[in-house]
Design a protein around this nucleic acid. Structure first.
Lengths: 200, 200
DNA sequence: GTCTATATGGGGATAGAC
DNA sequence: GTCTATCCCCATATAGAC
């Protein structure tokens, strides 16, 4: 990928994150990327193409990492695998915070794109967690519970603080991108999971 | 409030929810409300005025309900009060789902309005929960924990499934506005709180 | 309070030169 | 691949008649 395309993508990611997709103009992206505005249509067939490229590469990278980790922890017990996958998701969200926020926000509006992202990517994103839980239930290491509901609760705790980073900073006096926050978040989620999956 | 203003407000709430604030035009609101588009500027000084009115009345209603409940449960033990306030927040979110989604989405974009909502309303929204937890800690009924972090985890579990209602329906096969979902959500949050506040 | 008509600006996209 | 100039559309907001 040549330099111009990269500059456009990172400028767009930054501005979409801050002002939203509709709140960001092609001209503004071009200015931030220090690139002529016509190049955005040339390289990405328009503003929506930029968004789609960002989303696709976000999930492609994530799923590649998940696959690598699944091979590495193939023989680990479910609880440990759960801990690992949650750690991976959290780290990834934090390292790709602008696009995470962008995706989560745009998913909540009605659009063709949102529906496609849900079916193409989000179900697989969820599956990364639910398969590990189901594995633990099958092997009787976890209580038999409604996997979907548990996964939804976990994803809520993982994702909401990143989406509402300004709220977290301003109202909760916490820094959502700090190492300390990530550690607490993981500990909190694992405590929840123990209460659901291990205790009666 | 006369009928025209009401029609505009409910049309706007519906469309802002579905298409987002920026994704909704004044013309579209007027059409949905079956009202002349000039009346929106006349009654609310523009599109942003409609949004501000919706947000203000949402929180005014919520805080009124919270105050009423605080009087009613004045002498109840902290755990029961916690259960009550969470139930109230959940019911309110569900009954005012479009505006809840709208607010949560728009909060995540950088704007003057978002900052004002955070300082004016969200801190008080959080306080409704944190004061009950702090009360329980003071009376030694709860473990001494970081209230802010717990409240953030609770709010995440309460709010994210409503914001991402389409995801919940399409990927999790759950209906976020159903009675059954609300019951499970409350039970799940209380289980989390017991694990944090009561157990070692 | 409500309407019509319109002013004014900004948006995304592209044709065509280099 | 990159730039300039421009087209066309749609948005918000308002002036002024009723």
């Amino acid at each position: 990928m040549d330099q111009t395309k990269m500059r456009i993508l990172s400028a767009a990611a930054k501005l979409f994150d801050i002002y939203g997709y509709k709140g960001t103009s092609v001209r503004h992206i071009a200015e931030e990327a220090q690139v002529n505005s016509a190049l955005i249509s040339y390289h990405f067939q328009g503003k929506q193409g930029v968004l789609e490229t960002l989303i696709a590469s976000y999930f492609d990278t994530l799923f590649r990492l998940v696959e690598e980790q699944e091979i590495e922890y193939r023989d680990a017990p479910p609880y440990e695998r759960l801990e690992q996958i949650i750690g991976l998701y959290l780290r990834f969200q934090c390292e790709h915070a602008p696009i995470t926020r962008l995706i989560q926000r745009e998913l909540s509006v009605e659009s063709m794109l949102a529906r496609e992202v849900l079916t193409l990517y989000i179900s697989r994103w969820k599956h990364g967690l639910s398969r590990v839980i189901e594995m633990g239930i099958t092997s009787s290491e976890f209580q038999p519970v409604s996997t979907d509901r548990i996964v939804l609760a976990v994803i809520s705790q993982m994702t909401y603080p990143f989406l509402q980073a300004q709220m977290v900073r301003q109202v909760y006096d916490l820094e959502p991108y700090s190492e300390e926050f990530a550690l607490w978040q993981q500990a909190s989620i694992m405590r929840y999971l123990r209460a659901c999956l291990l205790d009666a």
